[in-house]
């Protein structure tokens, strides 16, 4: 049956505190949304759940949470649907660290009372924010223009997939713009269970970073490219789902020693 625990969004903030030279200030929350759409054809009956959530904001944070659980009795059994989408950008913790959390999850469960089929399992989820502005302020009187390093780390992901064979495609994108500097882009895309990544770039005290951050998840019943069909027997139970969460920290810190900086970039893989 459906595991409601999948939809408990856990905000993991494991803030580290490197040599602090500056702090973050949320200037503008921008605009953002969460979107979830789940549907499947179970024994000729369309089961669907969907929702759209607008970004909310308060002092020092911007975020959204949307979730829904549903159950439906069908001629061939009982279906459960659920989705959740969450986004949080939080500058209220460690002043040098802005916590980022993006989470999506959906599931389709079915307890069959008779033999049947399910097809057209199809889920699409997005959480995104654009135009969010973070101001780098000097922490201890550093003058504007003082070099700082900004780093992003801590991506994680978990996928579960039982019951229905489905292809999952996940994408995480970060686009940071700052005056006088090239755009900083992070583009991750994968279909497996986990991913990790990070980046680092130079900035200065007084700079305003304009962030676009998005997480996309799509699940399509296999085989890829055409709706699949799954048969079940009476009294079978199955659950399909794809919970996905990404946590990260955007940290501003003093500029590291040159050799350390070079090693970090080499580790990440640099291209231009």
């Amino acid at each position: 049956m459906f595991h409601k625990t999948l939809f408990i969004a856990a905000l993991a903030l494991a803030a580290t505190a490197p040599a602090q030279a500056a702090r973050w200030s949320l200037v503008d929350a921008g605009t953002g949304f969460g979107f979830s759409s789940l549907s499947a054809n179970i024994g000729g009956n369309i089961v669907a759940a969907d929702g759209f959530t607008d970004l909310d904001a308060g002092p020092g944070y911007a975020g959204l949470t949307g979730a829904d659980l549903g159950s439906l009795t069908l001629p061939g059994g009982a279906a459960d649907t659920g989705y959740a989408h969450t986004l949080l950008v939080d500058t209220l913790g460690d002043s040098a660290t802005t916590a980022l959390y993006l989470g999506t999850a959906h599931s389709l469960g079915f307890a069959a009372s008779a033999d049947g089929t399910v097809g057209d399992y199809f889920a699409t989820q997005d959480v995104a924010v654009s135009g969010l502005q973070l101001h780098i302020l000097g922490e201890a009187g550093e003058a504007e223009g003082t070099p700082v390093n900004v780093s992003l780390s801590g991506m994680t992901d978990v996928l579960l997939d039982r019951g229905l064979s489905a292809d999952h495609l996940i994408g995480l994108d970060l686009d940071i713009r700052q005056a006088g500097q090239p755009d900083t882009l992070l583009s991750l895309s994968w279909s497996g269970d986990a991913s990790a990544g990070g980046l680092s770039f130079a900035s200065v005290v007084g700079q305003v970073l304009d962030l676009t951050l998005s997480l996309h998840l799509q699940s399509t019943q296999s085989p890829r490219g055409r709706p699949g069909l799954h048969r079940w027997r009476a009294r079978q139970r199955w659950l399909s789902g794809s919970p996905r969460s990404s946590t990260g920290q955007l940290t501003v810190s003093a500029v590291p020693e040159p050799e350390s900086y070079a090693m970090l970039l080499a580790g990440l893989g640099l291209s231009g």
Partner: peptide, 18 residues
């Protein structure tokens, strides 16, 4: 011109639908 600082692709990159 945009500068791509980092592109990390974990597991198999899945080609997008046509």
């Amino acid at each position: 011109m945009k500068h791509l600082l980092a592109t990390a692709v974990a597991a198999a990159f899945v080609p997008t639908a046509a």
